[in-house]
């Protein structure tokens, strides 16, 4: 298998706080990998180590075949969670500067800037200062800056946070387009719907460790189908006492039955057919949201009393 990124048991501590705990992760070339996890799970710290912005305390990683990530930065596009632009610079100067830092220059750079601005419908803003842009426009400029050098690997840290619906759509389209072009994409999010729509594979991280990893179907398959939806004009309250039903909710002609573990839904189907005039019978697979809540709930989060506040992550521990 061809990998864009291999992470092997990396650990990052801030004082006594273990932000990333022997985490291993592989990203295949050309796939879209969603890194999910609650706030403070260690997603950003992991990504920063991948980008060589902070160094792991132990473990090793290989980015695009290089063990020193800073060597291949020009082939990677990174949109950090904390992102901004120089307010006093013009759009063009900003893109030119960021492009140069990514190793572009001259006519190629000018051409890419023009193409990019045109695609985002921002040609008219080229010579305006960044401070004149709306928030949505600045976000577009940030996407553009991330992709200007046509990276083969794109890392997006919470790319959807703070986006308006239009830019959200735009970014989703960009991701789909990039995947079609064969670009490897890793993005972190705590919004499950997005992950479900876009990812080939997901990794769920909590407390600095991988909780579950695999393709969407794979992950969902590991959780037995335990929800049964019935729709009927009849009163379905009787079903609450059927064997194997753990929980029962009904409203507006729709009943939602949660089955006990190891209950075969098949006999319930025949029972339901004979009991009610059914308009719908559905075995619902758990969605990512439910899996997430379930797994993280079992594992517990760091948002307890021993949690380290995000912004002060390092500082708190510098005392230690």
């Amino acid at each position: 298998m061809d990998y864009s990124l291999c992470i092997h048991e990396i650990t990052k501590r801030f004082g006594t706080f273990v932000a990333v705990d022997r985490l291993s992760l592989n990203v295949r070339r050309g796939e879209v990998l969603g890194v999910l996890g609650p706030n403070g799970a260690g997603k950003t710290t992991t990504i920063r180590m991948v980008m060589g912005i902070t160094m792991p305390d132990s473990g090793r990683l290989e980015l695009l075949g290089a063990s020193d990530p800073t060597k291949v930065k020009d082939r990677v596009g990174y949109l950090p969670e904390e992102r901004g632009l120089y307010r006093k610079m013009t759009v063009e100067a900003t893109l030119r500067y960021l492009g140069q830092l990514k190793g572009l220059s001259g006519a190629t750079l000018s051409q890419r800037i023009d193409e990019g601005l045109e695609r985002l419908g921002l040609q008219g803003w080229k010579t305006r200062k960044v401070e004149a842009l709306s928030k949505g426009m600045s976000q577009k400029i940030q996407f553009l800056a991330t992709l200007l050098h046509k990276p083969e690997f794109v890392i997006l840290d919470e790319p959807f946070s703070g986006l308006d619906p239009l830019n959200r759509d735009l970014l989703e389209k960009l991701i789909i387009e990039l995947r079609r072009e064969g670009v490897t994409i890793l993005f972190s999010t705590h919004q499950m719907e997005t992950a479900e729509d876009l990812c080939d594979r997901i990794v769920l991280i909590n407390k600095g460790r991988v909780l579950i990893e695999g393709s969407l179907a794979d992950v969902k398959g590991r959780f037995a189908t335990r929800t049964l939806i019935l729709e009927s004009v009849d009163d379905m309250r009787r079903a609450e006492h059927w064997p194997g039903v753990e929980q029962f909710e009904a409203s507006g002609g729709v009943a939602r039955l949660t089955l006990t573990e190891r209950t075969d839904p098949q006999p319930l189907l025949s029972q339901a057919v004979s009991a009610f005039r059914l308009t719908r019978f559905e075995l619902q697979r758990p969605n990512l949201q439910e899996i997430f809540v379930h797994l993280v709930g079992e594992d517990g989060t760091r948002d307890g009393p021993d949690a380290a506040p995000r912004s002060n992550l390092v500082r708190e521990n510098a005392h230690a």
Partner: peptide
């Protein structure tokens, strides 16, 4: 300015 406008990490994506 670079810190408060949150551009630092954008720069660090390209340079050390």
């Amino acid at each position: 300015e670079e810190k408060s406008s949150r551009i630092v990490e954008v720069l660090l994506s390209a340079i050390s």
